[in-house]
């Protein structure tokens, strides 16, 4: 296992800035630009890459590794490996930077699982700081009780038992859309509308709970 150091929270937490920065660009253009600038020695570009892909990589690794601590370490190693590569040689498909990072991350995870000695990395970067960072997803401060309250509110607002049944069959029973539509006699448009609005509303409720959780943590 490589260093237990973490990428600076200030770097990763700036993900939204990366979105604003590139809101009118395609992912391919942004990625290719980052790769070229990193190759040219830009430390700003290295930080921008970490900001842009850090949260997604952590989610992916947590999901695959089922171990938050290991996921944090592997994300750190992924960026170390990637920076070493990007500084020294070009990517074959620079527009597919996300695919490259995903590949590195999953390879590191496989190596870890095989109990192989993971590649010793020597790359150092001002963009990677040894600052503890336990940051997770956008709703990590929301408690289980708050989620339950949000679910209750959502179900109450859905209006009809049939719409509630759509969510139950989809998320609890893991039924397919076609099977749900056939069983409940609803068309695809209605299914999509219910699901879209339910998820949108649930996000609002979670974001509100997150704000309250942060309020509680102040002072």
């Amino acid at each position: 296992m490589a260093s237990r150091g973490r990428i600076s929270p200030s770097v990763i937490a700036g993900g939204s800035r990366a979105v604003v920065e590139g809101e009118n660009k395609l992912e391919l253009e942004i990625a290719a630009d980052l790769v070229a600038r990193i190759r040219a020695g830009s430390r700003d570009a290295e930080e921008a890459m970490i900001r842009r892909y850090g949260a997604g990589l952590l989610y992916l690794l947590k999901r695959r590794a089922r171990d938050p601590e290991l996921a944090l370490d592997l994300r750190q190693d992924t960026f170390r490996v990637a920076l070493e590569k990007l500084r020294s040689s070009p990517l074959e498909e620079p527009g597919r930077l996300a695919a490259y990072l995903r590949g590195v991350a999953l390879n590191l995870l496989i190596a870890q699982r095989r109990k192989d000695t993971r590649r010793a990395t020597t790359a150092d970067s001002d963009a990677i700081e040894t600052v503890a960072d336990e940051r997770g997803g956008p709703f990590d401060n929301v408690s289980r009780e708050q989620v339950r309250g949000a679910i209750g509110t959502l179900l109450e607002e859905l209006g009809t038992p049939r719409d509630r049944e759509i969510l139950t069959r989809l998320y609890i029973d893991d039924d397919d859309k076609d099977a749900i539509c056939a069983a409940l006699g609803v068309d695809s448009v209605h299914f999509n509308r219910v699901l879209f609005r339910a998820k949108q509303r649930f996000r609002e409720l979670l974001e509100r709970a997150e704000r309250r959780a942060k309020l509680r943590l102040v002072g």
Binding site: G15, S16, A18, V19, E27, I30, A31, R52, Y53, A55, G56, L57, Y59, L60, L97, A98, L101, R102, G137, P138, F139, V142, R144, V147, R148, A150, I151, L154, L167, T168, Y171, I172, A198, K199, F202, R203, L206
Partner: peptide, 22 residues
């Protein structure tokens, strides 16, 4: 990986799924 909005949607859906079961 490179889309924070999509990532937030995914995480919200996961919380919805876990929350519904709970």
């Amino acid at each position: 990986l490179g889309d924070p909005e999509l990532l937030a949607e995914l995480e919200a859906a996961e919380r919805l799924r876990d929350g519904l079961k709970d």
